[in-house]
Computed example of a mutant assay.
Amino acid sequence: MTCHKHLNHCHCTFVPSFVLNNLAKKGVNSAQVSIHQSNATRRKRKNKDVDMTTILADHSAQQMTAKGNALRQIYDCKQEYEQRVALVQEEGGPSLDDADANYAYEYAGVVRSYFENVLNRDSIDNSGLDLILNVHYGTNYLNAFWDGDEMTFGDGDNRIFTSFAKSLDVVAHELAHGVTQFTANLIYERQPGALNEHFSDVFGTAIKQHALRQTAHEADWLIGNDIMGPSLFGESLRSMKEPGTAYDNDLLGTDPQPSHMDHYYDGSSDNYGVHINSGIFNKVFYLVSMEIGTDKATQIWYHALQNLWEDADFTDAVAVLVRSGQILTKNKYVPLGTTQTIRSAFREVGL
Rank of each mutant, 00 (worst) to 15 (best):
F199A: 04
F199D: 01
S200D: 12
D201A: 12
D201M: 11
V202D: 04
F203H: 08
F203W: 14
F203Y: 15
G204V: 05
G204N: 04
G204Q: 03
T205C: 11
A206C: 10
A206Y: 00
I207H: 00
I207F: 03
I207D: 01
H210P: 03
H210F: 12
H210K: 10
L212W: 12
L212D: 15
R213H: 15
R213K: 14
R213Q: 15
R213Y: 10
Q214S: 06
Q214P: 02
T215M: 01
T215A: 01
T215L: 01
A216N: 04
H217L: 12
E218Y: 03
A219H: 11
D220W: 05
W221A: 00
I223V: 15
I223C: 03
I223H: 01
G224L: 03
G224F: 02
N225P: 07
N225I: 07
D226T: 09
D226I: 07
I227N: 00
G229D: 00
G229C: 05
G229L: 01
P230V: 09
P230R: 07
P230D: 05
L232R: 00
L232W: 03
L232D: 03
G234A: 07
G234V: 04
E235F: 13
E235R: 11
S236L: 03
S236A: 11
L237W: 04
L237N: 03
R238K: 14
R238L: 08
R238P: 01
S239G: 05
S239M: 02
K241C: 09
K241V: 03
K241M: 11
E242Q: 13
P243K: 04
P243I: 06
G244M: 10
A246L: 05
Y247L: 11
Y247T: 13
D248M: 11
D248L: 13
D248S: 15
D250H: 15
D250L: 12
D250M: 15
L251S: 00
L251V: 06
L251R: 03
D255G: 07
P256A: 10
P256K: 04
P256T: 08
Q257Y: 07
Q257K: 09
Q257P: 05
S259M: 12
S259G: 13
H260N: 14
H260L: 11
H260V: 11
M261S: 14
M261P: 05
H263R: 12
Y264G: 07
Y264R: 13
D266C: 13
G267T: 09
S268H: 11
S268Y: 15
S268K: 09
S268P: 10
S269H: 11
S269P: 08
D270N: 06
Y272F: 13
G273T: 06
V274Y: 01
H275D: 08
H275S: 13
I276T: 10
I276N: 05
N277M: 09
N277D: 12
N277S: 09
N277E: 12
G279T: 06
G279W: 02
I280E: 04
I280W: 03
I280V: 15
F281H: 12
F281T: 12
N282W: 04
N282F: 05
N282K: 15
K283P: 07
K283M: 10
K283R: 15
K283Q: 15
K283E: 09
V284H: 02
V284T: 08
V284P: 02
F285I: 10
Y286N: 01
V288I: 14
V288C: 02
V288D: 01
M290I: 00
M290R: 06
E291H: 07
G293K: 00
G293A: 02
G293H: 00
T294L: 04
D295T: 13
D295G: 07
D295Y: 03
